[in-house]
Write a protein that binds this DNA or RNA. Structure first.
Lengths: 221, 221
DNA sequence: TAATATTTGCACCGATCGTTGCAATCTTCC
DNA sequence: GGAAGATTGCAACGATCGGTGCAAATATTA
């Protein structure tokens, strides 16, 4: 049986702490972010943090878990909102992609800076904790997206053998240039074009096609 | 005119230092990697490091520049070796992808850990230095890959409007699952399947097609 | 109001780290 | 062999940081 830790301290203080910690962890990274700075950011005494969390490590884990949950919820919501009732698949996917990328510049932006911190120290993080995060975060959204794609394919518009992999491909294609050119994240036109290009490649890549021997089945006519 | 800094100290010591620094920066990150540890790893006195570099920051920059150059050279080499003479496009692309991913587990692996460090502190890095790295590193390989794809498309096998973007798509699709499941990097079968799936999506996505109105041009027949 | 839980400020410990100065030793090259 | 330069070990400084103990102050609840 897992020990049930009774919550100690006032909940609003705890929220303030995790919020401030998220800000500073995201901006400065785990090591650089000092507890004094976090306390200041949270409008809380240094000593109070240790009243809610035993460790800096435990604080980080709590922040991570909280943020992951919130972002995953948002992502799943976006998936449900754009990919349940499909009118025009291409424009729906583009809208979905834009909403998806919009999260990166929303108030949840710090989360992704946090992800980069995780990624940098990935060799030093206990695999169990890492897998737990992977599961409740990107894993969940990818699963949700895969399910939507499966249903769309089921209705005969796409050819998808492995929905999970297709979901991965779609997510990557949508945010393609993002990795090489972060400036475009705030350029509405470039953003739309990038997403449209990614969606286009995805749609052609998974277009319904007759199953015959070679690849020629798709580029024929 | 940019100041020419005359090299100080013995070149082999300098190489030993940058090599050791790469190892530790990659493993522990910029902040965690101590200069004493770096000195020990390099088989060199702490004090000697300050004879070659003024700062920890300058040392890091030198390491970064060196490593980026070497990896970019390797990448360009792989591109040239696999994508110059095309026999069977699909199998050539798969071989290319496997060689590409092979670099991630080669002796150049520390470089990518270093990249993750960069990515984590991306907000704290002077944009000029960042752009310089972007240009001589991934930018260069993407450019080279784009050129190869352009030539391939020119010979009528693919339809590529924007070679640079296509190159980006190909690179992402090849290493798709890599981001979600790092364990598969050492599983030969899973790796091959992942690359094959990515290449397949890419080939369908950019398959030669007759230019007509709708998307139906590709999924017909 | 009284009892209890929580927060706060402050001083402090121990450890790590970047950096420097210095004098001694070793290498390189003429 | 000797001069110039490079390397080394060592000690030390100043700063930062995680974490703790303690007693006073504040808020919560009965």
């Amino acid at each position: 049986m897992t020990e049930r830790k009774k919550p100690v301290g006032q909940p609003d203080k705890r929220r303030a702490i995790t919020a401030g910690a998220l800000t500073l962890f995201a901006r400065d990274g785990y090591t650089r972010a000092g507890l004094d700075a976090i306390a200041a950011e949270a409008g809380v005494s240094n000593r109070t943090i240790y009243n809610h969390f035993t460790d800096k490590a435990e604080l980080f884990q709590a922040v991570m878990q909280e943020s992951t949950q919130r972002v995953a919820d948002t992502m799943v919501d976006i998936i449900d909102r754009h990919l349940t009732k499909i009118i025009d698949l291409e424009s729906d996917l583009i809208d979905f992609g834009l909403a998806w990328l919009g999260v990166l510049t929303s108030d949840l932006a710090p989360h992704f800076a946090l992800i980069r911190q995780i990624n940098a120290e990935i060799e030093h993080i206990p695999p169990a904790a890492l897998q737990l995060w992977q599961q409740t975060g990107p894993g969940r959204t990818r699963c949700e997206l895969a399910e939507r794609l499966r249903r769309i394919a089921e209705r005969g518009v796409l050819t998808i053998d492995d929905p999970a992999r297709a979901a991965g491909h779609l997510m990557l294609l949508i945010s393609a240039d993002n990795l090489t050119d972060r400036a475009d994240l705030h350029n509405e036109n470039a953003l739309r074009e990038m997403v449209a290009a990614g969606v286009s490649t995805f749609l052609y890549g998974y277009a319904k096609r007759t199953v015959v021997g070679g690849r020629d089945a798709a580029d024929g006519a």
